[in-house]
Design a protein around this nucleic acid. Sequence first.
DNA 1: GTAGGGTTAG
Length: 648
Amino acid sequence: MRFKQLHTSSLCLLPNRTRIHAQSAAPPRRNTSDFFRSPTTKSLPEPRTKKVTDSDIVKCNIAITTHMRNGQCDVALRLFNSMPRKTTVSYNTMISGYLSNGSFKLAHQLFDEMPLKDLVTCNIMISGYIKNKNLLAARQLFDEMPVKDVVSWNAILSGYAQNGLVDEARRVFHLMPEKNEISWNGILAAYVQNGRIEEARRLFESKERWPVVSWNCLMSGYLKKKRLEEARQIFDRMPVRDAVSWNTMITCYAQNGRMEEARKLFEKSPIRDVFTWTAMVSGYIQNGQLHDARRIFDEMPEKNVISWNAMIAGYVQSKNMDLAGELFEAMPCRNVSSWNTMITGYAQSGDIARARNLFVKMPHRDCISWAAIIAGFAQNGDSEEALQMFIEMKRDGERLNRSAFTCVLSTCADIAAFELGKQIHGRVVKAGYEFGCYVGNALLAMYCRCGSIDEAYNVFKRIEDKDVVSWNTIIIGYARHGFGEEALKHFESMKRASSRAPDDAQNLMRSMPFEPDAATWGALLGASRIHGNTSLGEKAAEMIFALEPWNSGMYVLLSNLYASSGRWVDKKKQHMLKCHSEKLAVAYGIMKIPSGRPVRVFKNLRVCEDCHTAIKHIAKIVGRLIILRDPNRFHHFKDGVCNCGDYW
DNA sequence: GTAGGGTTAG
């Protein structure tokens, strides 16, 4: 690399022959005359050639900054290239612009080409490496710098913090020749971001004054752990609050279903920006309060794409595609996720024609759009079209990501497309997604569905973080293919896996849902029947009853189990149970319709003794059916005969 | 009056 000399005294030789211009601790005031030797005498100006003044260069630099901030890298580059002379600042501006626009490669290229690197250049590049998760390169550059300032140290400190290397971050912190507020905040953030909240707290209490960002940081640490009360205490103690403080606290209440507290804080907040409003909208949506969400949305003084998207997603979630469509039409500007949300919504509501229409019309597609439309066709039973779209997606040059693979594989499973599934498996391996849980599960399901249980087991073995779906799929796979014993074996090892005590919280979270779902219990029930294992079968039926009391298949399977083990079951009773369960399913379906209606639906409900248990269970799921706690509201059928006509 | 390091949120 070649360099232009700026301040001879501060030029240093780097070990790898890289020379950079370093600033001393108190940086010399640089002005553009360092870079441009403007003529001191009025030598003959070239006719018709405009003299390039310092202020021209500065103006260009500023224009580059603006273009970069607007995301117009190409415009910035054109300007940059047209500059007759470029200063270090011009290069630095370009590089940092590229980095903030995510063009790491271009930034790096320019960095390599740059004739003269100074301290700022290296600091920019260090943060670039860190953003790109290349901690080693960042560290190497850091080590090569002949002079570092507090910015360099802070950058490397936060690099370690963001990548979970807390102890390394602490080492850096102690080595720093000078520390400022940002350094202190850096080590605080290192603890907070890595879940070491108690250490963060101790550090925080060890120092008198903290800037508002650090208060925010500590508060968010408690919020991440869902320790809302402690977070609130921090919030209340804060000497100064900024928009982040208010937004963080409000968002957290909203996301944890505590809309009343969110609302109170929202009304008190002196600084409401688009984030605050949108957080309230999404909070209400998540809480099922669509009307409140819409009210806030309508009151919003300023909306951005994200607020619109949030509201549309709310309607899509509650299957109200008409209102979603209305809003979508009314949007002043849309982004890819607006389109994707609508496509997903139409696809999931079975309106694949509309979904396809939008897909064709949308200006830019990303891999989510493709995955949405592929899944849409697949879920609506048009597997051929789904695969056709998959092929078109490849033709379009869209790179396959995890979700696209997952989608397509589940389509293959649907139509038992074994050969294609195998081909895709090859691509999955190539892409290195094989061991991931989502793609792995989809592969597993595909092989199970195609009857290739050995291959399925091979996939199962390789999935690194098996979750409940992986276990359920393999168990169901074995059970469906008549390998009852294998299914039971896996069931046992699943139980063992779930009963192991895990230290860190994440593992615990992962293994918590190791409770088989109704489908798995169903498979086990089926397997038990084949093997005549009545006690496991009864246990399975009991579990299904607890999870899905309306699951009619369970009653049939159970009675078959009894029948095959020689226990006599009254056909009439079996029919009765089935009948009840179907009614309950209908009832449950209605109850899932939003806005508290179910109470009315259930008002005149009559249940027999057996059903009563089921109803109570549903009440538990829904949570607000207080009428069910009043037994006088029910008619109990004592004789075991339930007249379905009396049901409503 | 231009370029680099810290918190949060849709």
